[in-house]
Amino acid sequence: MAYSKKVVDKFEKTLNEPAKFNVGRFNPKDTDVGTGMVGAPACGDVMKLQIKCKLEGNQHVISDVKFKTYGCGSAIASSSELVDMLIGKTLEEAKEIKNKDIADALELPPIKIHCSVLAEDSIKQAIEDFEQKQ
């Protein structure tokens, strides 16, 4: 299937320089870390997103993000795109990110919209996990 240039670029950059593109993991037990894992191997995609937060004033701000994604090229590109959107945002701002923002940024075709939905779910779950620890 022909991909948008943006998906291919994002996918290739992430694959070639994983560290620079926030591939990796934090210790999920750390209290300043929130972990979200969505999808299933049988469905062909699993995204694991981890946020590290620090308190600025009375708000938690996402200071760093790590992720790993098993899935097609657009699933990997969607995760990577989401990471770019998250760093520096407050949790309240991060909750506002919608799948459409990711889909639009990558020009995902309709058949790949579920990749961006999964990415949105992963951040929701990561925030939930973080908030439960506080």
């Binding site: 994983p18 591939v23 993991r25 699993v46 995204m47 694991k48 790993k68 994604t69």
Partner: peptide, 19 residues
């Protein structure tokens, strides 16, 4: 190898988690 570095499932496999 590079895609496995990106894969949470590979990580779980290396950690010995029964998926």
């Amino acid at each position: 190898e590079r895609l496995r570095e990106l894969s949470p499932l590979w990580e779980m496999h290396l950690d010995g988690i029964d998926m």
